[in-house]
Each structure stands twice: as C-alpha cells, then as structure tokens.
Design a binder for these strands. Structure first.
Length: 868
RNA sequence: GGCCGAAUAGCCCAAUGGUAGAGGCAGGGGUCUUAAACACCCUAUAGUGUGGGUUCGAGUCCCACUUCGGCCA
C-alpha cells in the first residue's frame, strides 16, 4: 500500500460509487425505508464550512442506515429563488437566472468532492419551471379549498424608487438603495390561511418526540395561544356606523384601570375620521417607517385624541377618551384596545406622554398603593393583591383575575371569553421578479381567476430589465397579457410572486417524485414520507419549520400527501455552527487632508482591519501578520463570516488534506448540536490521524499470514467494544463520542500483538466503523484488506454480546462516600458474597479501625459503599 | 424584562446518581537523526462557575446567585 494520497483515492472512489449507482434511491418493498434530509442550501456562490458540517452529519446517518439494510433516500436541491439574485442583477448587471444557475454549478462542483452519498438524480432547483409549475398547481388547489385569500395589508413603500421593499431592504427606516424614508402603504396581497390551523399546529407539537424541546417551545410561543375577553364599548360622538367599538384584551382583570381606549391608525373608525385634516395629517405621520414588528416597537409612541368617548362597561358614568395610537396593530385582535397604563409598559409610556391617568388595579402581595414609575407587570401565575379588581379587594393570581373577569363579562352579557393566536396569516405576495409567479389572472368581467392547470407553468419571462426599480414583471411589454381562463376575454396576469418560504415548504415532498408531472405521486409519497431525520440550523426553528408543517397539512387536504404525512418531519436535529477566531489590527483612519472645524485638528480615530486565517502566523507568544510581522489581536471564536474574515474555505482544506480530513474534523470534538471551533491544529491532527490509520493498514497488510499473536482474545473484545460504542454514538447523534471511540480503538489495534487473521478482521471492522465519517479512506482500507465488494455496501458489523461483558469486575469500595479500596470479583457474584469479601478486605479493615458498620450498599457491577 | 440552554485540566470535550478522564489539541520527557523536522513511545496538570439542599454517595437531582449564548418582547 503506497502513501496516503487523499486527492487520488477520493476521486477514484467517488467515480466507483457513481458508476455503481450506490446512492440511487429505489423503492424496495422488501426493505424498510429511511429518508434523511439536510436543509437545502441557497445558491449564494460558494459552499462554506457550515454546509460541510451539515451535509456530513446527514451523510453519516445516510451511510450508516444504508449499511443497516435500509433503503435510503438522501437527496439534495437548491432553494434558488430570492432577492440576492435580483440584487446582483441590479448591482452588477446580468440576469438573476444566469447568476443562480451559475452559482448552482459552482456549488455542486464544490460539493461533489466531499463524497456525499447523495442521489443526485433527484436534484431539484426551486427556480426551475418543472418545480415551480407544480407549486402553482398546488396554489390553485389551495385556492379551491379556501386555504388562500386576498386582503389589504401593509407593505414597505420606497417613495423615491416607487417600489415595495422587503423587510430586509429597510435599513434604519430607510430604503436600502434610495435612502429615502420608508412609508407604510396598503396593498391587496395574497395570504395562506395558516391561522385556521393554529390550534392543530400547536397541539401536534406534543407528538414531535424526536424534535428538540427548544424548537417545540419556540414554535408554541410563536403560535402564541391566549385566552382573553372580547367586548364592545358603547361610543359617544363617534361617526355614523361606529356606535360600538370592539376591543380584545388578555388582561380583562385590569379593566378598572382603563384610562383610555386606543385604535390602530388602520382601524376603520380612524379611516372614517380622515376627512378631518388634523386626523389625516396624523395618519400620514403614522405611515412613516417600516412594517416590521421591530420598527413599530422601537418607533416613538405617538397618539391623537379623536374627541370621541366610550363608556366604561362596568360603570357607564365613566367615559374614556379614544386615541389613535401608532403602536396598535390592526391585524392583532380587533385593532382596538383599552389602555391600562398601570399594567402595560407601552400604555404607561403613552399615558405619561399625554398626561392620562395611571390607576393601579393590583399591587404586589404586601405592597401599598403608590405612584408608579413604570408599569407593574408580574407574571399572570403570580399572586397579587387586587385593590381595584372587578370584584373589589382580593388576593389572587392574575390568571384567576382574568378568569373571574371573563366570567363576569359573560354573565352580564357585555363580552365573551375568546381564544386568540399570535400567529397571523402568512402573507406570500412579493412584488419581485425572481420568484414563483402566482398563477392567477385578473379579468375585467370575471375578476380574479386561477390559471387553467394545462397552462401551467406560468413561466417567468427571461427578457426583463433591472435598470429601473420596482417589479420588472409589471413593466414587461407583453408578459401580463393573457386571456381569461373563464370567459376568454383579454385579461392581465398577476405580477406578484410567492415568498421563497413557499418554495422550501414542500421540497421534501417533491424529492419523493422529483420529475413527476403532478406535485407528488401517491405511491412514492406513501413509501418515502415522512422525512425520518431532518437536519439543519436552529435559525429555521420557527418560520421554515412552521410553514412546512402547515404546507404538509395543506397538501394533505388537497390530496397531494397522505394523512400520515401531515406532520412531515419525524425527527429534527439542529446542528451548531462552525466558528473561528477573528484576527484584527487597528489602523489610523486615513487623513483626508481636510481639517475639522474645531481648531484644524485631523481626526485621529482607529479603524478595525480584519485578516484571513491564512494571512497570519501563530507563534508561541501570539499571532502575527505574515506580511509585515505586526502583532494581531485575537478575538474569541464567532460564526464564520466574510465581514470578519474568519472564514476557512472548505475547498482549500480539501486541496490540502482531502475531504475525509474535513469531514473527520467537523464531526470530532464538539457535540453536533453545539458550535465547533475550526482550528488549523485540529485540522492537521485529523489528517495525521487518518495517515496513521493508513500506515497501520499497510503494516497489517505486510504481516506474515502465519503470525501468531498472544492477544487475540483481547483484540476481539476491543473490536466488539468499538462496534458497540460507535454504533451507539451514531444512533444518538453523538458523533464526537463515536470518533473518540475510534481513536481509542485505533490506538489499541496499533499496539496489539494478535494473530494475522484477527488483526485483519479488526482493521476491516475499523474501516467499516469509520466509513460513515470518512468513506474514502475506509473504502481503500476495505479493499486492500480483502473486504468483499464495496465498504459502502457492506452490512454494518455486529458486536457479539458475549464479548461485551467482562468475566470479572473491579469494584471500588467506599467508606462513608470516600474511595478507600477495590476488589476484583467474578461478574455474577451475589451481593451477599461481595459484602463479605469487602468487609474482609485488608484496607477496609484498616480504615474502619474497629468502628461498627451501620450499613453496606452494594451496587452490582458498580460500587460498594460501607457506612460506618 | 420573560423563557430556554450552557459552565468539568491551558483549550475543545467524556463521564445510565456510583473510582472525575474516553478522545483530541497544546505542554513536558524520551527514541530515531550529525542536528532538526517528521514519525513513534511515555507523561504532569483540574475536583467540575459560586453558595446552599436532598442522598450511603452529587459534575449529574432541587433552590438561589454569577457569567456567557439563543429566542421572544
């Protein structure tokens, strides 16, 4: 066996696997199936270490399950629509489609050398008409089932570029290109009725036993079920048709602390008042700023007193002013609230600003009624003393207070208890080009009509220009022109495209039949679904996973997925990030020659300069720049990012050490759910280890066939132990522990004096156990040591249970909890015998020094504790 | 502010309530070498963030606190 040359063997084995079609997924009724999926990448341009870690984890599982006799589906695709492609087109010219397909080619070429066991014949790209056409078909099916609707909603409007902006394009309230202050504007948009399924999406979380608790919790909080009271204020002096004002509150127990009523600027009553120039001016002011919750939250709270009054439901003699307030959202609850400044921080700030009364309803247990400097907002589960409760003075929890208030409102008939969800319907309209066109037609006579399925896909036109802002689909000379699918008259296409989260909400289902002329094929979906193991980043814990869960349900209701697949991911694993140290120097800001007003001094600030890991040298006393030897400040590890330059290009690592080294490193040390720090020394260590295994394989290969060793039994035991530990490590996603066992087994094997056949058997087993992590070197060792067929297709080794149990055990003896002695006993010696032996032990007798033994605890196979 | 998670040797990390060390990095010593690098062999080091509690026995369970990270406001 020659030297370890990864570049040589890796390319060769990849070719061999390819030609043998080892990773092609096949429906096989005789085998159990296993579907392992990693979150598919956005084709940004190049792969990074995070991809390597994510896909290696999936690959370990896929290869392991395949060895265990499963028919494995392990596909890969591209989340290929989205704004970066359009931004690139606007900034550098070119076309989003060319940019995207170019990136896909580069990234695929970079992924191939990793040796992943991916069935590339199932590759999909969401920007391909073959994919998004089926998505359009499902959209139409969902329209028929009432899961899709249109309504007016707010968008970020750039008044200079005259275009809609995505939330990410609003930076500090300004348009990212024009720099103009962003306004909120109402536009009719498409929505998925995810709120209809809120209850189901929440309750089904309990069944997701193999999901991280953390993710289930985040989803539950996002769905945000709450019990509250909905009631109507009687209004005084309101415009025609507004004699009632419906409000919703989760704290009806604080009703006696109400000091005003507030309505959203988008509330119908606010709009009805807009004839008044003062109101109109205020509403215009509210429209400034973006639509994100964060933007609304951080914006200064402003209000306008309408002069309208409402009567307090519990005491009609009290009249409260009605204010229009910018912090009230139209799409939560009824768009109207009652303000209780004493127990809501936003209301408190608002009341302070506009000098409205602040009346506490309850105080902390044992506290007195005193003026507040901020809102008092204890947990609802906490007991408080009500001083102005609806039933007078009382000590009880907030939850009890709320229940009491709802009961009272219902018995008096002025309101009713209502369950509401924080989860709002999913707005999917995007006024952009590079997305899946919404397949509907606007007909002057028939209105909004879905496109006929035989006319799908509604393809994106290629000849568009990005010279002007806005949606190129609107400006295209002919694309919008069509005929009404219903009446045949001239009509116009919808120009909105779908949110890219739609594309990624069903790709897992498409992989089961990626070339079908329907979204899915019943038999394939029935065989392959669900995804048995889904792996991806925690950053998708909420939106992507929630939307996917919704979509699986919607696809079930439209007949595209079986009922068993309504919850599409059986097990979820969220992996940590790959991090790296940051290297920084500080340099004086360049002088620009101009002097400052204050005395002609030039600005003497420092500017931070970051350096790539390959541009620095690590010496004993620190880190220095290779170029000029200056000392570099080392900032603790953080997620690899281009702006901090703490990135290591996987391609460089593969070129230097090979893919197996990169794979081995990202799986070792840190538990997979935690971040792993990439270090140059760690990567070298991984490579050295693989070389050692290679050399060990050579040595064993050159052993004389008739060599007789003395440690055959011990090596057989060690082999069984390694099989057991590695198997359990992989099964439980403890890849770091599996790798630690492999290090230990390698060390044992290297030192073992065993007979040639036993040594050969051991190294073949080592190769197999390593193969999920480092498949190429494993394959080389397997073939060199005469393994049958391909290592990738060999059945997973089984440990002989008899070899896992030792004949004798060493039991430590504790006296009063401190370890004092140990004895060696046969493994099945009864406890009573062990007790006798322990008490007779020389050291024990010495330590007891004649004290009487009060109690003796024998934990079989573990420990003996003598209490004196 | 609320919720969740983490804290073990210089560093990354192991340890079903039962001998704190499996493994890796760095460090020290040695073999090989004219010498060094490589390779190989051997190896020191912590009592588990702090303070309480439960237990025969706590890194592990409970309570409080500190620091760091994540999510939500």
């Amino acid at each position: 066996m020659s030297r370890y040359e990864p570049s040589q063997i890796e390319a060769d084995w990849q070719k061999t696997w390819d030609e043998a079609g080892v990773f092609t997924a096949r429906r096989d009724a005789a085998k159990p199936k296993y579907y392992v999926l990693e979150m598919f990448p956005y084709p940004s341009g190049r792969i990074h270490m995070g991809h390597v870690r994510n896909y290696t984890m999936g690959d370990v599982v896929a290869r392991y399950k395949s060895s265990c006799g499963f028919s494995v589906l392990h596909p890969m695709g591209w989340d290929a629509f989205g704004m970066p492609a359009e931004n690139a087109a606007m900034e550098k010219g070119g076309h989003p489609q060319d940019w995207t397909y170019g990136n896909i080619k580069v990234m695929k070429d970079q992924m191939k050398p990793l040796g992943l066991s991916i069935d590339w014949s199932r590759e999909v790209a969401t920007c391909h008409p073959g994919y998004y056409g089926q998505q359009q078909a499902m959209f139409i099916d969902m329209m028929e089932k009432g899961l899709v609707y249109r309504k007016a909603a707010m968008v970020n409007w750039d008044p200079v570029d005259m275009t809609v902006l995505a939330n990410e394009q609003v930076i500090d309230g300004k348009g990212w290109r024009s720099g103009a202050a962003v306004e909120r504007r109402e536009l009719t948009q498409w929505f998925f009725k995810i709120s209809d399924m809120a209850e189901d999406l929440l309750e089904a979380l309990d069944g997701l036993k193999d999901w991280p608790e953390k993710v289930r919790l985040m989803q539950a909080n996002w769905i945000g079920k709450s019990r509250g009271l909905q009631f109507a204020f009687e209004t005084v002096g309101a415009p025609e048709g507004f004699d009632k004002l419906e409000v919703y509150t989760t704290r009806p127990d604080t009703l006696m602390g109400a000091s005003f009523a507030g309505i959203s600027p988008d509330h119908p009553m606010a709009k009805a008042l807009a004839g008044d120039p003062a109101v109109e001016a205020f509403l215009a002011l509210c429209r400034q700023g973006g639509t994100t919750a964060e933007a609304l939250e951080t914006a200064e709270k402003i209000g306008f007193d309408t002069g309208i009054r409402v009567k307090h439901p519990l005491d009609p003699s009290i009249e409260l002013p009605v204010w229009i307030a910018n912090f009230i959202l139209m799409d939560y609850g009824t768009g109207a609230i009652f303000g209780c400044p004493a127990h809501d921080q936003r209301d408190f700030e608002f009341a302070t600003k506009y000098s409205l009364p602040i009346t506490p309803v309850f105080v902390a247990e044992g506290a007195e009624d005193a003026a507040l400097t901020e809102a008092f907002t204890p947990m609802k589960s906490e007991k408080v003393r009500y001083i102005r409760g609806i039933s007078g003075e009382k000590l009880m929890t907030g939850d009890e207070g709320v229940a009491e208030a709802i009961a009272l409102a219902e018995s008096r008939g002025f309101g009713q208890g209502v369950t509401k969800f924080r989860l709002r319907d999913w707005g999917v309209s995007r006024q952009r080009y590079w997305g899946c066109p919404i397949p509907v037609v606007h007909c002057p006579t028939c209105g909004v009509v879905p496109e006929r399925k035989e006319n799908l896909p509604v393809e994106l036109p290629y000849d568009v220009s990005f010279d002007n802002p806005g949606n190129p689909l609107e400006r295209h000379p002919t694309w919008r022109d069509c005929t009404c699918p219903k009446c045949g008259a001239a009509a116009k296409r919808e120009t909105d495209t779908m949110d890219t989260f739609v594309d990624s909400s069903w790709y897992y289902a498409r992989f089961t039949a990626p070339r079908a002329t329907t979204p899915t094929v019943a038999e394939d979906a029935a065989y392959w679904m669900n995804v048995d193991q889904y792996i991806g980043g925690i950053e998708h814990a909420i939106l992507h996973l929630l939307y996917s869960r919704f979509f699986a349900r919607a696809m079930n209701e439209t007949g595209h997925l079986p009922t068993a697949a309504r919850e599409p991911f059986n097990a979820l694993f969220t992996q940590g990030m790959v991090t790296h140290e940051i290297y920084m120097t500080e340099q004086p800001l360049r002088r620009d020659g101009t002097s400052k007003r204050d005395g002609g001094q030039t600005y003497s600030g420092l500017r931070k300069v970051y350096h790539l890991p390959e541009d620095v040298d690590r010496r004993e006393d620190g880190v220095y720049l290779k170029a000029d030897g200056r000392k570099v400040e080392v900032i603790p590890s953080a997620k690899m990012s281009k702006s901090k330059k703490n990135v290591v290009d996987p391609m460089n690592i593969i070129a230097e050490f090979g893919a197996d080294t990169a794979r081995w490193f990202v799986m070792s040390d840190s538990p997979p759910e935690r971040d792993v720090e990439w270090t140059a020394s760690g990567a070298e260590a991984a490579h050295k280890h693989l070389s050692r295994v290679w050399n060990l394989c050579s040595r064993i290969g050159e052993m004389p066939a008739d060599h007789q060793g003395k440690e055959d039994a011990a090596l057989l035991k060690a082999t069984a132990k390694a099989i057991d530990e590695v198997t359990r490590g992989i099964e439980t996603f403890a890849f770091n522990k599996a790798i630690a066992s492999l290090y230990a087994f390698t060390n044992t094997l290297a030192k073992a004096d065993a007979s040639t056949p036993v040594m050969k058997e051991a190294i073949r087993t080592l190769a197999q156990l390593m193969s999920p992590m480092v498949p190429h070197i494993a394959e080389s060792i397997w073939s060199y040591q005469g393994g049958a067929g391909l290592c990738a297709q060999a059945p997973w080794p089984k440990a002989d249970p008899a070899l896992l149990i030792d004949d004798t055990v060493t039991l430590p003896i504790q006296i009063n909890g401190k370890r004092r002695a140990e004895i060696v006993v046969p493994k099945d010696m009864p406890a009573s015998e062990i007790e006798k032996l322990a008490l007779a032990d020389e050291d024990v007798v010495k330590f007891l020094a004649g004290q009487p033994v009060k109690k003796i605890i024998v934990v079989p196979g573990r420990i003996i504790n003598v209490v004196a």
